[in-house]
Amino acid sequence: MDESPAIGIRERARGALRGELADVALRLFEERGYDQTPVDDIASAAGISPRTFYRYFGTKEEVLFGDLPPTSVDLPALLEDHLLRAGPWEALHQTLRHVAENIGTQRGRWSRLLRVVNTSDTLRAGHLEQQMNLAQSLIPTLVPAVEGPAGWSDLRARVLVHAALTCFDTAFSHWAERDGDIEMLEALDIAFTTFSTLDSVQA
């Protein structure tokens, strides 16, 4: 059954308010610092109560990381689909290209977010935890595609996934910190090409 118009409108309104709160929070984090900006201040600046804030975000940290990776697609399912047509490394590449396409038009916002993250030990740790969670969601999908002794498949899949996410993070940082001389997809492609021989783990 199709989603009713009323539900669709409510979801769009919820998404718009989440985006507004994220923008307000990012501005305050830039001005005052992440650790020096309590939820009460974010809520006040956005014209809502702290209680309402927590209806949209479970924590202050989630304001920055709640929509990362920025895609509505199930990434393990997308990886599984790419594995039907490509080896493990290229399948990871194409899966993360989907994420890159979703952020490639918002360099200014991501540059600002990256600067804020780099000023806070709490945020750096949160970002690392998020990457670990993403890795854990992708590894089981990749394991069956990595040929070789069963005892080594899990290890090889872990290495490939973590290397792929490192390529993404490095390309993302390089792109976000520059003034437009390179696009996100181009940076990601260059990063993955550096390790293109990793597909040989299938042999």
Rank of each mutant, 00 (worst) to 15 (best):
Leu96Glu: 00
Leu28Met: 05
Ser137Tyr: 01
Arg112Asp: 15
Thr95Val: 10
Ala191Pro: 03
Leu155Tyr: 11
Leu64Thr: 05
Arg97Tyr: 01
Pro5Trp: 05
Phe192Gly: 06
Asp74Met: 07
Thr59Ile: 04
Met1Lys: 15
Asp67Gln: 14
Leu138Pro: 06
Ser111Lys: 12
Arg55Tyr: 08
Thr170Ser: 14
Asp23Arg: 15
Asp199His: 03
Leu134Gln: 11
His127Asp: 12
Gly66Glu: 01
Val73Pro: 00
Glu11Arg: 13
Gly66Pro: 01
Glu183Ala: 14
Glu31Asp: 10
Val63Thr: 14
Pro69Ile: 09
Thr194Cys: 06
Asn133Pro: 01
Asp189His: 08
Ile103Arg: 14
Thr197Tyr: 06
His82Pro: 03
Gln202Ala: 11
Val161Thr: 03
Phe65Trp: 00
Gly15Phe: 02
Leu138Cys: 09
Pro88Asn: 10
Arg156Ala: 10
Glu20Ala: 12
Ile139Trp: 00
Arg10Glu: 14
Asn133Ser: 13
Arg156Asn: 07
Arg12Ala: 15
Ile48Ser: 13
Gln136Lys: 13
Arg85Ser: 14
Gln131Ser: 10
Tyr56Thr: 06
Tyr34Cys: 02
Gly19Ala: 07
Leu26Glu: 11
Ala6Pro: 01
Ala16Glu: 07
Val116Ser: 01
Ser120Ala: 11
Ala100Glu: 00
Thr95Ala: 12
Phe172Trp: 05
Arg14Ile: 09
Asp41Glu: 15
